[in-house]
């Protein structure tokens, strides 16, 4: 591994990656879903994870989240090798996943949702005041101005606001790596704008962000790096400035684009 790290870095890899995957393999029975995956995710940067349906995006994030432990390969978190054998391992390290189907309870308010399962207490009594303050601080830090009240029920929020709350919930836990699974998939134009702004601020506040999307506009709007998966392999993991839209689409659909992408022998098996 050390040999890899000493390879001359490009400008954007000078910083130590928050998460670093090397040679990760994952199979479900006879089906190998992830092949020798290399991926670096940097603090303060948005990494767009793109790939066609079935390319292995979901499996990859579930491996990072500890839901599907990997078969082989190494995972380093902030430079230290780690084992991710369950969601708790991931949460302890500061990895938070915001799933596409939002894990929010409609009948609870914003504060209650953000602290769900991890309520602050004084004795047996819920410490509502401190939770409300912390929730508001987090939302303020992320410059969320669209919420009328933090004591609003989630059922009364728009899709974009709900996504915002889900993301803020992930940030509340001093998370270092936030993984967003298609956060703009079901949103309108204005709400997509809100969420993309929020994703940007998430990175600007020092989080490493993995952003899964099918939308090329979103990728070039918000991402600093792009990682393309093709049939379970990482076809490219490069700064966004080194690729254009056509190249990214080629990487997604064929795993190659000019000099970039998988060697032809890898594509054959």
């Amino acid at each position: 591994m050390s040999a890899l790290e000493q390879t001359p870095p490009t400008s954007s890899t000078l910083e130590r990656p928050t998460l670093s995957l090397r040679g990760v393999n994952k199979s479900f029975g006879a089906v190998q879903v992830l092949h020798d995956v290399h991926l670096d995710v940097y603090p303060g940067k948005v990494t767009a994870l793109v790939g066609d349906n079935g390319a292995g995006k979901s499996t990859l994030i579930k491996s990072i989240a500890g839901i599907h432990p990997i078969d082989s390969g190494t995972v380093e978190f902030e430079g230290k090798p780690v084992q991710l054998n369950g969601p708790r391992d991931a949460a302890r390290l500061g990895i938070e996943v915001v799933y596409q189907d939002l894990a929010l309870a409609d009948n609870l308010d914003v504060v209650q949702n953000m602290f769900l399962g991890r309520e602050r207490k004084r004795g047996v009594v819920l410490d509502e005041a401190s939770m409300e303050e912390a929730a508001r601080d987090t939302l303020t830090k992320l410059s969320v101005r669209t919420l009328k009240s933090v004591r609003q029920l989630v059922s009364s929020l728009s899709g974009g606001q709900r996504q915002t709350v889900a993301i803020a919930k992930a940030v509340l836990w001093e998370s270092k790596l936030v993984i967003l699974d298609e956060p703009t998939a079901a949103l309108g134009v204005a709400q997509t704008r809100q969420v993309l702004d929020l994703v940007r601020r998430l990175a600007d506040t020092g989080h490493a962000v993995v952003f899964i999307t099918h939308n090329m506009v979103d990728v070039f709007e918000v991402a600093d790096r792009v990682a393309a998966l093709y049939l379970g392999r990482v076809a490219a993991d490069v700064p966004i400035s080194e690729v254009d839209r056509t190249q990214v689409i080629e990487l997604i659909t064929s795993g190659r684009s000019g000099e970039l992408g998988l060697a032809s022998d890898a594509l054959e098996d």
């Binding site: 929010l104 309870a105 009948n107």
Partner: peptide, 12 residues
């Protein structure tokens, strides 16, 4: 709080 949460969205 958890009773309400389970009633509102058990998966969440």
């Amino acid at each position: 709080r958890h009773v309400y949460a389970v009633g509102g969205n058990a998966e969440a």
